[in-house]
Lab assay of single mutants.
Amino acid sequence: MDALKSAGRALIRSPSLAKQSWGGGGRHRKLPENWTDTRETLLEGMLFSLKYLGMTLVEQPKGEELSAAAIKRIVATAKASGKKLQKVTLKVSPRGIILTDNLTNQLIENVSIYRISYCTADKMHDKVFAYIAQSQHNQSLECHAFLCTKRKMAQAVTLTVAQAFKVAFEFWQVSKEEKEKRDKASQEGGDVLGARQDCTPPLKSLVATGNLLDLEETAKAPLSTVSANTTNMDEVPRPQALSGSSVVWELDDGLDEAFSRLAQSRTNPQVLDTGLTAQDMHYAQCLSPVDWDKPDSSGTEQDDLFSF
């Protein structure tokens, strides 16, 4: 819950932080000083300027060897085509990944977070970031790969997607708890209302004896509580940590079903599988986004697919 609360507080303090972009060759504004600060901008989305290598189908939802083989196929196909790589912007948030063309600003792909089953910074092609997700059109699994400016960037994108998945799962947990509370309150309110109706004398007997209905007592009954809980029953509950912020979080049926399955089948359902080692994760978390744009010590960066 700490990640969720800190993310909400950060967004309320400075929503404009989320509009910064990394990996864009110096076009961005001043960047936060450390990885923790940038992680807090996830709610509205972190932007990464990358190059799209392509996509291939895979048979399993996750796995280092599986993704490595898929990336190898994608890279080989991209090299064989001889075409310049498409420059894209990857927007990562707890909602998922939005992929747009840098030149036309046209939407290429919009992947809900619950469809993503794996992401990684490839070991062999260490400047490549990739994720595996279920197609929104059918049940097939797709591996999408992107060329980053350097290994640090690939690791940073991988960690960002993993963190977005974690925050999304926490949102789901909060929403589920809130819905259970509202359902319980609604049920209790309905029981109270039913009890009051059972003990209320029939209207005919009131008229016969000349008694008047006590409207004041009726007004004191917990009807307002019942209506408050039943009027918006169809509205999706939102985490309290975000009250007053500009973010509107809505959970669709697909996300609810997917996270429910994860909660039942996995020990740590909030953790998205990645190909990063503990050492890689520690190294990337210690980086400032400013470091992502620094040239690798191995030599001059080449803006070309064939540089790796």
Score class of each variant (00 low, 15 high):
V226I: 11
A164E: 00
L262F: 02
T104A: 07
E217P: 02
K19M: 01
D214Q: 09
L103R: 15
R115P: 15
Q197H: 06
E188S: 12
E180R: 02
Y114I: 08
R13T: 13
G96M: 02
E65D: 15
L255K: 10
C143N: 13
R196I: 10
Q187M: 05
M153V: 04
K179T: 00
N34H: 12
L11I: 03
A228R: 03
E59I: 11
G23Y: 04
A241K: 13
G190P: 02
W22H: 13
V236Q: 00
W172R: 01
T100A: 14
Y131F: 09
K204C: 09
Q302G: 04
W172Y: 01
A258E: 09
D303F: 03
N110R: 03
R261G: 13
L141A: 13
G25M: 07
N268W: 04
G96Y: 08
S140D: 12
A10K: 12
C143S: 05
L66S: 12
L53F: 12
L31I: 09
W172E: 01
V226S: 06
Q270A: 02
T267Q: 08
V111S: 15
K19S: 14
G190S: 07
S307A: 09
Q270M: 06
A154H: 04
N102P: 12
S298F: 09
N110P: 04
E33D: 15
S21E: 09
N138C: 13
I97E: 01
D253I: 00
K72E: 07
S297Y: 00
T41I: 09
S245M: 15
K181M: 12
I74W: 12
K204R: 09
D126M: 02
L53W: 14
D2W: 05
F48H: 04
K84G: 13
A162M: 00
D256K: 04
R238M: 05
L11S: 15
S112R: 00
E257V: 13
V236L: 09
H282F: 00
T231H: 01
F171C: 02
L242V: 07
E142L: 14
K84I: 03
A208V: 04
D293K: 09
S140W: 14
R266E: 01
L262T: 05
F169E: 01
Q264M: 01
P295T: 01
K87D: 15
A121P: 02
L50K: 05
Q134Y: 12
S288G: 05
A10V: 13
V248S: 07
Q134G: 12
L50S: 12
E257Q: 10
M46I: 15
P94V: 12
L213F: 05
C119P: 04
S117W: 05
S243G: 14
R95E: 02
L242D: 02
K204P: 03
A154V: 07
F129I: 09
L31H: 04
A78L: 13
V128A: 06
D252F: 06
E177I: 01
Q60G: 05
R261L: 04
G82T: 05
S205E: 08
A80M: 03
Y114M: 00
T77P: 12
A258K: 05
I98F: 12
S227K: 05
I113L: 04
K152H: 00
F171E: 00
S135P: 08
Q270D: 05
T89Y: 14
T100Y: 11
D126V: 03
P289R: 02
T209V: 05
E65W: 15
S265T: 00
F146V: 14
G82Y: 02
L11D: 04
L305S: 08
L31P: 14
A68T: 15
T158W: 01
P222L: 09
G54K: 09
S117V: 15
E180Q: 05
R115F: 02
S140I: 15
L17C: 12
H125K: 05
E33A: 14
F146R: 13
D126T: 06
A18S: 05
V207N: 05
S297D: 04
A156F: 11
F169D: 01
K30N: 15
E65P: 05
T149V: 11
K84T: 15
L159K: 12
Q86Y: 10
L262N: 02
A185Y: 08
Q134H: 11
K91V: 08
I113H: 11
D183R: 13
T36A: 04
D304T: 08
C119K: 14
A185K: 11
D198L: 12
Y52A: 08
A145F: 11
S21F: 02
A219I: 12
S245R: 12
Q240S: 09
G8R: 11
K179E: 02
A162P: 00
E65L: 14
E257K: 00
S93R: 11
H137G: 10
T36Y: 05
E40C: 12
Q173L: 02
R115H: 01
R261W: 01
N211P: 06
T56D: 00
G189F: 06
W35L: 04
V157A: 00
W172Q: 01
M233C: 08
A121Y: 05
W172C: 01
A168Q: 05
T41K: 11
L212H: 07
P269H: 02
Y283R: 07
I116A: 12
A3Q: 09
G190V: 13
S243R: 11
T104V: 07
D252A: 13
T120L: 00
K294D: 02
Q139V: 15
T56N: 04
G26Q: 03
